[in-house]
């Protein structure tokens, strides 16, 4: 950041500047915190999760109401949620509704369609946390992926990075728009309460508990009722595992669940992002190469170049 005029005042040659720059860059590589951009593994073995059994869900949308009420979002009275006409078109969570329920036909029983709650999956290796350039997002030990509004600069990289297209942005806010998404009721849970949606579900289609136990329960249900479920627990391995797990009565692709690999989503983006700056070798190498070229060309011009 030193200005060229300053260099001249101090009587530094170009060669000396390059030498210094390379030296500083090489010194920086010894700072492991900068090179280690990947968050350290904070996943506790007894971290919590929610098992969503879409075959139990009755589509009452009490979870939507409970979520809005506990997050201070404007909501019509609970009675209006009985209106099933909202199921006519697919909805996505947004800044005004952090969770929504959609309906899909049930080929086994047309009279009882499947209803599926959508919200942040709270990945064990969240892409949004990895993509956030100011470290506003973080994965808590309890399982929640939360964000610090004070740090957020509104770059919306998290929106692009999320494999489930969950984070929403307050586009209508001219001043200080914020990122909004499900926070897995981080605050409520610290107070010893259940997540608002889990508490308001009448049929306990949402089971809140330690993730490891939920996986066991989910597998047990599939084993017990093979006719009822497809033999798959969505979220067990998706993008390295998610805190929210799903059971379904028909193929997850038919319920608009994205087909994702087992590798954590940050793996790809981080390998590119961090690869560019890994241990500062590439920038040092680049500047070194440029310096070498300049030095070589300067020597050439000194020796026999035309004046």
């Amino acid at each position: 950041m030193n200005s060229s005029s300053g260099d001249k005042e101090k009587g530094l040659t170009r060669r000396a500047f390059i030498k210094n720059t390379v030296g500083i860059a090489a010194g920086l590589t010894s700072l492991p915190a900068l090179a280690q951009a990947k968050p350290e593994n904070i996943l506790s073995p007894d971290r919590m999760g929610v098992l969503v059994d879409t075959t139990v869900c009755i589509g009452c949308r009490n979870c939507e109401w409970g979520c809005k009420t506990s997050h201070g979002l404007p909501t019509p009275p609970l009675e209006t949620y009985e209106d099933a006409s909202v199921f006519e078109k697919m909805r996505r969570p947004d800044d005004k509704a952090l969770t929504v329920v959609n309906s899909y036909p049930n080929p086994k029983d047309p009279k009882a369609p499947y209803t599926v709650k959508v919200q942040c999956m709270h990945c064990d290796h969240p892409a949004c946390v990895s993509a956030c350039i100011v470290g506003a997002l973080s994965k808590e030990e309890s399982g929640s992926v939360i964000w610090d509004t004070g740090k957020c600069i509104g770059c919306r990289y998290c929106i692009v990075a999320c494999p489930f297209q969950i984070p929403a942005f307050e586009y209508y806010q001219a001043l200080q728009p914020e990122i909004r998404k499900c926070d897995f009721c981080s605050g409520r849970r610290k107070d010893g309460k259940l997540p608002a949606c889990v508490e308001s579900c009448p049929a306990e289609a949402l089971t809140y508990g330690p993730r490891e136990e939920l996986v066991r329960i989910a597998r047990n249900r599939v084993k017990r009722y093979p006719q009822r479920y497809v033999n798959y627990v969505y979220g067990e391995y998706e993008v390295g595992g998610t805190s929210w797990l799903y059971l379904a009565g028909r193929d997850f692709a038919d319920l608009q669940f994205p087909k994702l690999g087992k590798n954590p989503a940050p793996g790809v983006s981080e390998s590119i992002q961090h690869g560019i700056f890994a241990y500062f070798v590439p920038p040092v190498a680049l500047y070194g190469l440029l310096g070498l070229l300049m030095w070589v060309s300067k020597n050439n011009s000194d020796e026999g170049g035309p004046k």
């Binding site: 139990v56 889990v198 329960i217």
Partner: peptide, 21 residues
């Protein structure tokens, strides 16, 4: 609902699961 044995639904859940179906 907040309990340690999660293998079977709580009373509210069990009743609703029985009736609503």
């Amino acid at each position: 609902r907040a309990r340690s044995d999660l293998a079977s639904p709580d009373l509210k859940g069990a009743l609703h699961q029985l009736c609503v179906g």
